[in-house]
Amino acid sequence: MLTSAAFEGLSWNLWADIVGLFDFPFMVHALVAGTAVALVAGPVGWLMVLRRQTFAGHTLSVISFPGAAGAALIGLPLGIGYFGAFAAGALALSGVSRGDSGTESRESAATGTIQALALALGLLFVSLYHGLLNGVSGLLFGTFLGITSTQAAVLALIAFAALALLTVAWRPLVFASIDTEVARARGVPVRALSLGFLLLLGLTVAATSQITGALLVFALLVTPAAAAQQLTARPMLGVALATGIALAVTWIGLGLAYYSIYPAGFFITSLAFLVYVSTRVRSVVVRA
């Protein structure tokens, strides 16, 4: 399927290799989609880490697996499965969370229950589908090769809408995240923002799943945000760093995958992990 260019591997000419990335439409689509996803994953991930909702985020990503498998089973596009699942998942999670402090352990137990159910459903759908799906691994670990121009355009549109919503709700959302009670007393609609953020998180997870697969979503959502929070406690700088790291690992990861036989999800995750480890090492060195 891939023509020789991709299989020739990396040359010694970096510029030629970069230009070579744009030879094929599928790669251009993947880069557009990856860029859109990374732009949203940065700020949303930063908020998710601030709100300590990484477990909820993980559950939403697991939920996108039965969503996609179910869509394949009944013959719908995978994207519809991903996005349908996130809406159901976010609503289920908001039913669990009461937006109050001090309920974290109960919340995470209930969230774990939902996560287990989601995995079981995904497995059921995949087995009902008799493996015609391009493998469970595609859903779990991502396939960027099949991204169409429509998909790329939809992801870009979603990214734009999500960023617009985030911009409008930014300050109350941060306020409600770090200081729920004071924010509520000051008239911030804490409950509505909490549900709204879960929906936005689900949307981002569903979009990210299409690049990295359901299980590696955290490479773009959590790792860059966690690394950024190691580097700075300034909010806007942290968001910018998280977004920058997400963009860089996406581009480099897709590029490396293009010139190798290994999946993009692996490269993106490993690069993000390397960035995170180096920020941890830096924090330790700075403190010492």
């Binding site: 300050r171 109350p172 941060v174 924010a183 000051r186 911030v188 300034r234």
Partner: peptide, 29 residues
Amino acid sequence: PQRRTFDESSRIRGVDVVRLGLDGSRWGV
């Protein structure tokens, strides 16, 4: 409010927390 204190993992500056008291309930960035 009566509260737990911020723990080590709260990576936001004191000045940001104070600033939210001023304009945190306003929309926008």
